[in-house]
Structure formats: C-alpha cells, structure tokens
C-alpha cells in the first residue's frame, strides 16, 4: 500500500470527524484510490439492490401475528418494477382484485396501518415490524380502533388514500421504503394522512423519515408518530397545518 504517488487519505483527514461526506479520501494522480472506488461501488450496489428488493411477505406476516389483527396482502396497478419506476401513477392505485378484496372488510376505524415497498422493500422488511412493536401498544392502550393491517406490493405513498378511503379509516399511516442513498439503503419513511381520499397531495400529509437502526430509532419514531396521530385526530387535519411540537423533544 505504499505505491509511489498513491495517497491513501489526505493530511486533513482529521476533518472527517465533522461530517460523513467523503472528504480527505486521498488520490492517485487526480483519481480516487482503488479502495475508495470499490467502497463507492459497493454502496451503490446496495442502493440498487434495495430498489429491486422484494417485500418479504411471509416474514412480515409472521412478525405481524403478535398484534392479533387481520392482515390483507394487496398489489398496486404497477405489475413489475420497471413499470413502477416509469409510471409512478400506477403505484398510487390499487389493482382491481385488491380493491375488491378490501370490500369484504367491515369499514370504519380510527387508523389503518399500511406497509408498502416503495423504493426500498429492504427498508420495510427491516424496520416495519420493529417500529410497530413500539407503536401498536401505544395505540391499543389509548383504545384506538384499528383496521386490518395492509401489506402492499409495488406501492407509492398515495396508495394510502385509496386504502384509507376503502376502509373508511380516519387516518391512514403508511410505512414505506425511501429512495435509497449511498449512506443508507434501508431507510423507512412514515406518512400520515387525516381523512384519506383520492386526489390528496403531499402537503396534506405529515412525514417522519429516516427510520432505521442507525437513523431515527424505532422507539423515537413510534413516539413521534403517536404524537402526530393524536394531534391529527384531535384537530381533524394533517399536513402543513399540523406541526411537530418542538417541546415534545423529538427532532427528526
């Protein structure tokens, strides 16, 4: 590792303590070193694999069984990943069999919890049950009426409007894989919508993002979401008009 001219790191490498940005990474000529190149390529591979990862439905069903709620497995109108990526609208609507399936369930609930792949099924496989282990007891203790849990493939955030409306839930809460970055391919987001119905846009929602082991911890995320759910029910709204309470102590 002492090839002439190859610098593994720079004299100012100590600055790395202040940021996760790729600073002080050295060079050979004007290029990055072999080590850096391969590390970058690996991070990108993780992100790409996350985009094409699949919901582990069996694993989720097993993990969700502890909550004693019916679980419904649904699918969006996007049939496969490439179509999902090119036609975002298809991921926002339920396919016909799924819409029919929902009709078999008695409508009316305070909240429906939806688990969806989004742009990283891996994130959801990893984090959804862990988050719910903290959130579910809070909801149950507060006597919330819970709709069946919905697990949806090839879905985008707005599919929570369709599902929430079909089950006539006051609030829909969707846990969904965020677009993977190089630093994290397993980051889950949670979007809350009061009065879900077709045609809503993102300003009608509240989002808690970066939920993962090395990001926003599951317990903290659950507390933050529980707070938002109660506020939304209380004020009968969500979105830009519903603010996180800073005094509550949870900074995203």
């Amino acid at each position: 590792m002492s090839e002439k001219g190859v610098q593994h790191g720079n004299p100012w490498q100590a600055l790395q303590q202040y940021t996760n940005a790729r600073i002080g990474i050295g060079r050979t000529g004007t290029s990055i070193t072999m080590h850096q190149l391969l590390q970058f390529r690996l991070a990108h591979a993780h992100a790409r694999d996350a985009v094409y990862s699949k919901l582990d439905v069996d694993g989720l069903l097993a993990g969700l069984s502890q909550f004693n709620l019916p679980v419904i497995v649904l699918h969006s109108k996007a049939e496969y990943r490439e179509q999902y990526l090119k036609m975002p609208g298809l991921g926002r609507d339920l396919d016909t069999p799924s819409a029919e399936l929902l009709r078999a369930y008695a409508p009316g609930a305070d909240i429906v919890i939806i688990i969806a792949d989004g742009l990283s099924a891996a994130a959801v496989n990893e984090n959804a049950v862990n988050l719910l282990e903290h959130l579910m007891p809070m909801l149950v203790n507060d006597d919330f009426v819970l709709a069946p849990v919905c697990v949806v493939r090839q879905a985008r955030v707005a599919i929570s409007d369709d599902i929430g409306a079909a089950l006539r839930a006051k609030i829909s809460l969707i846990l969904i894989g965020e677009r993977p970055g190089l630093s994290a391919a397993d980051s889950m987001g949670a979007y809350l919508t009061y009065g879900p119905r077709e045609g809503l846009t993102d300003e009608a929602r509240n989002c808690v993002s970066n939920i993962r082991q090395h990001g926003l911890a599951h317990k903290q995320a659950a507390e933050k979401l529980f707070y938002l759910v109660k506020q939304a029910l209380n004020k009968k709204l969500s979105g830009v008009l519903l603010k996180d309470n800073d005094e509550h102590g949870y900074v995203p």
Partner: peptide, 25 residues
C-alpha cells in the same frame, strides 16, 4: 464539485472534486 461524488444531504450522486481535476487534466 461534491466530496467523493456523494451528496449526503440530497442523496444523489454528482461529480466530485477529483472528476473536475480529471477533465481539466
């Protein structure tokens, strides 16, 4: 010019400081 091409805030990849040096050279 982004450290190591990796924007850790916007979560996308762009050109690095090294890349600019390559083009100039």
């Amino acid at each position: 010019g982004i450290p190591g091409s990796d924007d850790i805030m916007l979560n996308y990849q762009s050109t690095s400081f090294h890349d600019a040096l390559y083009v100039r050279k």
